[in-house]
């Protein structure tokens, strides 16, 4: 099957999935006992039936659920995700303004995780059963076991509160003006505007949340790289390469690595999708104005236009990264290309 047919088929399969997702998020938002009126109106307002009634009418809560759902789908087709009850802005605008922060942070984190994880994994497999292997395995198991919120607090305590080496929560110091918006990524925008001070400040703010987010990813990537590398190193063609008298470095880098990295690509892709879909805990602790924190706030205030909008966006990102991973898989693995 040519690649483009495969991609088209996958895209077509996404449509029922997306409809299912709207349905699930709609059910969560509606069929469950939580009352958005109580979550969004103050106590005084709640005691006034007129205000409550007006609130219900304004958000369409007085209509039957089926009508609400159909209205929602119809609006969705026109690119309208409704209006957030909490921020009173269109959900689409909210998402647009929160996505770049998440994108910047997760890209930073996945780069750290990828570089460290792959390097750890390879060295641990090549020098198997040495002290190095033991240390790497320990680090990677600790990485996937650390509660991120706890790690975040400890790092903040050490590097911000005590040593003053790195800044606290937020994307920039309070005294620093955000750069003019091109992409919404502060590091890139400040570079484009030639504001070095702002760039350095934004970069410093990325370090702590970036490493916190990368801790799990690094551990995961290191583990997968190691086991995949070990499997490949035991293959016949590696033995052949060695018996041809090739240098060990060539055997590892050219013959083994290329094949060992295929499953690693999947893990990296899926982790990236996971990070992009908002690191709720990390973003909340670091007051990072991203998708994860938005999702958290929307959930807590039962702001269901926002919950549905953010769920939809997140699942879209998730499904899209899955697709990219599968396509990469096809490109990397010649056996799948012909098969």
């Amino acid at each position: 099957m040519p690649l483009y047919v495969y991609i088209l088929r996958r895209l077509a399969l996404m449509i029922p999935l997306l409809i299912g997702i709207t349905l699930v998020s709609f059910l969560i938002a509606n069929a469950i006992p939580g009352d958005p009126v109580a979550a969004n109106l103050g106590q005084r307002a709640m005691s006034d039936p007129e205000i409550v009634e007006a609130f219900r009418r304004e958000w369409g809560l007085d209509k039957p659920v089926v009508i609400q759902y159909i209205t929602y789908l119809n609006n969705l087709l026109h690119g309208n995700l409704g209006r957030s009850i909490k921020s009173r802005r269109p959900v689409m605008d909210d998402l647009k303004s929160f996505l770049p922060a998440t994108f910047e942070l997760s890209t930073f984190a996945i780069v750290i995780g990828m570089v460290l994880g792959v390097a750890f994994g390879i060295s641990s497999a090549v020098w198997r059963n040495t002290v190095l292997d033991f240390v790497v395995r320990l680090i990677s198991i600790l990485g996937v076991s650390t509660p991120v919120f706890w790690l975040a607090l400890i790092l903040l305590f050490i590097f911000y509160s005590r040593l003053h080496w790195l800044p606290g929560p937020g994307r920039l110091d309070v005294t620093v003006m955000p750069p003019p918006t091109f992409t919404g990524l502060y590091t890139l925008d400040s570079l484009l505007a030639g504001q070095w001070g702002t760039f350095l400040n934004a970069l410093k703010h990325l370090i702590l949340p970036g490493f916190v987010l990368a801790s799990y990813t690094t551990g995961l990537i290191a583990r997968v790289t190691r086991s995949s590398m070990l499997e490949v190193l035991g293959q016949e063609y590696v033995r052949t390469a060695r018996s041809k008298g090739l240098h060990e470095r060539v055997v590892i880098m050219r013959h083994a690595l290329a094949n060992a990295l295929i499953p690693v690509v999947t893990v990296i892709g899926l982790s990236y999708g996971n990070l992009l879909s908002g690191a709720v805990l990390t973003e909340t602790i670091f007051a990072w104005p991203g998708i994860g924190r938005y999702a958290f706030r929307a959930s807590v205030s039962l702001d269901f236009p926002a919950i549905m909008g953010v769920s939809l966006l997140i699942s879209l990102i998730f499904v899209a990264t899955n697709l990219v991973v599968d396509v990469l898989y096809h490109l990397l693995d010649p056996r799948l290309r012909t098969g």
Binding site: P16, L17, G20, I21, L23, V24, S25, I28, A29, I32, P33, G34, N274, S277, G278, V280, L281, G292, A295, F296, S299, V300, L302, I307, V310, S311, I314, S315, F318, V319
Partner: peptide, 23 residues
């Protein structure tokens, strides 16, 4: 297909939405 829909949500987001809705 139903499991796929559930799996398309990142775990923490779905759990969070359900937990928040239930109280």
């Amino acid at each position: 297909r139903i499991t796929e829909v559930f799996m398309a949500f990142p775990t923490i987001i779905l759990a969070m939405a359900v937990a928040a809705a239930l109280g």
